[in-house]
């Protein structure tokens, strides 16, 4: 089982996939989310979101602006106002 990760902007659902780990630029510091993370909610600052599709590979980076992240039993959801 991997982490279910969703990246959503007001315009569209950008990503909805299973990944290994995601690092999120939270307002009070970056945090990484793996599967089975405790329920958590944080606003995010403008920065780089790193998506690790597997444990060894290089991360894929997505620049995001404005929004917040929510972790629940279903996985991680990042709502961003802008990407790229």
């Amino acid at each position: 089982m991997a982490l279910h990760f969703e990246l959503v902007t007001p315009e569209r659902l950008v990503r909805s996939e299973s990944v290994h780990m995601v690092t999120v630029p939270g307002t009070e510091g970056d945090f990484a989310v793996l599967e089975g993370h405790a329920p958590f909610m944080s606003t995010i600052r403008d920065g780089i979101l790193s998506v690790y599709t597997n444990a060894s590979g290089q991360p894929e980076t997505i620049a995001i602006r404005g929004g917040f992240a929510e972790v629940n039993a279903q996985g991680l959801t990042v709502l961003a106002e802008h990407i790229g």
């Binding site: 009070e28 909610m41 629940n72």
Partner: peptide, 27 residues
């Protein structure tokens, strides 16, 4: 009925809410 009781907030709920309210109006 989200399992909000155990959710951790960062920063606190009020700040997140204050951040989300204007966004909600824009949406």
């Amino acid at each position: 009925p989200a399992a909000a009781a155990v959710t951790e907030y960062e920063p606190d709920e009020e700040s997140i809410l204050a951040d989300l309210l204007p966004r909600n109006i824009a949406v």
